[in-house]
């Protein structure tokens, strides 16, 4: 290397943070939830996650390499993360070819069509998930019941989720302990509240995300469902059940906090989180779909640019 003095504007040091550190950090935070899903859904969880991650990474690589003719950037970990999050939102017995379609939708439509990481408006994993939910409603809403390390992939016994029980009425709800641990039907990554909260603590500790969005989402959903429960406990479920069931925690902690598609200021994050909490509750309580987290996040994703315009960071010295 040439031996000349290097000149650059200040600052001359960097904190060492990187996109990779954050992406792999989130992946690490998802490990407990993954472990629980493997425990309850066995082979199915492994296959679905592997297929989803592999097809997301491959889709990103191929699109960057051959369509956009750019240097592929799969090393930054964002495609892996999209793959894992997509898988976590799928039932563990979903046929592989459907997963591949979902991954293509997530990366192709959700991410690359906007110009890649940083430019997408919607959370790619959720784009993939909703794409599949609308295209394959039957397969997407048939959940296998949790067993203990089951080895079969597609032929497991299926049953309803907590939320579909609530939506249609009837059936007995799982206990709070089961919901915490994840011993209930549902998408493979969303079942264990305890594992997801563990991941949340890790993300906060490593300063990968701030508390604003998850806390706003959870608090709003809790308050809204709580008010309805107090008004009419016979028709509406306990807010604790709402909190621990379905994709609320997974969505609040890992999907709503996606950097690219969430607002930048603290106040904006709170508004965004409250919006997700409200929309989720409305869809769950009054809508025909049992679950509304995905739609709520996507709707708020669309509003993020607007939130960014109106909710600026708190300016030093005020106005």
């Amino acid at each position: 290397m040439e031996n000349k003095l290097i000149i650059s504007p200040s600052p001359h040091i960097h904190g060492g943070d990187s996109i990779q550190r954050n992406m792999y950090g989130v992946l690490l935070a998802l490990v407990p939830a993954f472990a629980v899903s493997v425990y309850y859904f066995g082979m199915g969880a492994l296959v679905v996650t592997a297929v989803s991650v592999a097809s997301c990474v491959l889709a990103e690589y191929l699109i960057q390499r051959f369509l956009l003719k750019r240097e592929p950037s799969i090393g930054d970990g964002s495609a892996i993360l999209t793959g894992v999050l997509l898988a976590f939102n799928l039932p563990s017995n979903l046929p592989a070819w459907i997963i591949v379609i979902g991954a293509l939708a997530a990366i192709g439509i959700g991410k690359m069509s906007f110009g890649g990481l940083g430019n997408n408006i919607f959370n790619p994993a959720l784009v993939g998930r909703v794409f599949l939910l609308i295209s394959f409603p039957a397969q997407m809403t048939t959940w296998p019941l949790p067993g203990k390390l089951p080895m079969e992939y597609t032929d497991s016994i299926t049953g309803a989720t907590t939320l579909s029980l609530l939506n249609e009425g009837g059936g007995s709800l799982p206990s709070v302990v089961d919901m915490l641990l994840g011993n209930m039907g549902g998408s493979l990554g969303e079942v264990s509240a305890a594992a997801l909260l563990l991941g949340f603590v890790y993300l906060l500790a490593r300063k990968i995300i701030t508390w604003h969005i998850p806390v706003a989402v959870i608090a709003t959903a809790f308050a809204m469902t709580g008010v309805m429960y107090l008004a009419d406990p016979l028709s509406y479920a306990d807010p604790v059940v709402h909190l621990l069931s379905g994709g609320l925690l997974l969505g609040a902690i890992f999907m709503a906090t996606d950097y690219v598609t969430s607002p930048m200021s603290s106040s904006g994050m709170i508004v965004y989180g409250v919006g997700i909490g409200l929309l989720t509750s409305v869809i769950r309580l009054f809508g025909s779909y049992p679950e509304g987290v995905s739609f709520a996040i996507l709707i708020m994703n669309a509003l993020t640019p607007l939130i960014n315009t109106y909710f600026k960071p708190k300016h030093f010295g005020g106005k």
Partner: peptide, 14 residues
């Protein structure tokens, strides 16, 4: 000939 190496944002104004 160069006498040093610039390592900032590639922008003349900067």
């Amino acid at each position: 000939p160069r006498v040093n190496r610039y390592d900032g944002a590639r922008n003349c104004a900067i």
